[in-house]
């Protein structure tokens, strides 16, 4: 079976600084894959490379077997890959409802339509209401996204990401800055919403990572030093030395 995401020999330099070096990563369809690694290792850059936010200096990225490196983010998104951002990245002046609805529009085939009333599209309305219900923000639907609490904005970020119904979902530190209770809630949400999908998640909380992931990749200085099941990663001496050791797990 072709992998959902296949990253092969990707390099990324900013100026003459190599941030990503010989990156190889394979995520199977339906797998929950966590990427861990110290701050500045290049996890977000990896997300940017896969989602088309930045182009690799060399190497290739495949989505469901098709080459996507070099494509624009919206082209990659239309092929069924959706990502969230580590720093909340929503439409601040628009309401929660509008935020999610915008993310539903392309996937429901309405594209750039200027001859349809957006309020009388039943499938758009139902899907938006469903997503709001899923992310527990129905009671905040008419609030501008910029006025939400931090945790609510993080939930909206997830909502926008999954709204298109993409089959490959990438979440960059979705629980960063959340309290324990909020994290627990968010993880339950992620687990439920990505049922049957491919998930790539960057996460710092090791209990979340080991509880959620089918496979884990460890990224250090722009290179994946180990990739495997949680058990394999736990036992890997390189990982212990480079990463888990520091965290005293």
């Amino acid at each position: 079976m072709t992998a959902a995401i296949e990253v092969r020999a990707v390099e990324k330099r900013f100026g003459n600084v190599g941030i990503i070096r010989d990156l190889n990563l394979s995520v199977a369809k339906g797998e929950r894959h966590a990427i861990i690694g110290p701050n500045g290792a290049g996890k977000s850059t990896t997300f940017n490379l896969i989602s088309g936010h930045i182009a690799p200096t060399s190497g290739e990225v495949k989505l469901n077997g098709d080459l996507i490196s070099g494509l624009q983010p919206f082209e990659i998104n239309r092929r069924g890959l959706s990502r969230s951002f580590q720093v909340t990245n929503v439409f601040a002046r628009m309401t929660v409802w509008e935020n999610v609805r915008c993310a539903v529009l392309w996937a429901t085939g309405h594209r750039y339509a200027f001859w349809k009333n957006v309020d009388s599209l039943p499938e758009v309305r139902e899907r938006t209401a469903q997503i709001l219900d899923d992310i527990h923000l129905t009671h905040r639907r008419d609030v501008p996204a910029g006025l939400l609490t931090y945790a609510e904005q993080r939930e909206l970020e997830i909502g926008i990401t999954i709204a298109s119904g993409a089959t490959v979902v990438m979440l960059d530190e979705p629980t960063a800055g959340m309290s324990n209770a909020e994290t627990e809630r968010a993880v339950a949400l992620i687990r439920r919403l990505t049922e049957g999908k491919t998930l790539v998640i960057v996460e710092h909380d090791m209990s979340v990572v080991f509880g959620l992931a089918d496979r884990i990749s460890v990224l250090v200085y722009g290179h994946i030093i180990a990739s495997g099941t949680p058990e394999e990663i736990r036992r890997d001496p390189k990982v212990k030395e480079a990463y888990l050791g520091e965290e005293a797990h």
Binding site: S51, G52, F74, N77, W106, A163
Partner: peptide, 15 residues
């Protein structure tokens, strides 16, 4: 409106 608020994010919802 979404492009006005955040042109970067719009690219990641298909537009």
């Amino acid at each position: 409106n979404a492009v006005r608020d955040n042109p970067e994010r719009v690219q990641f919802i298909g537009y």
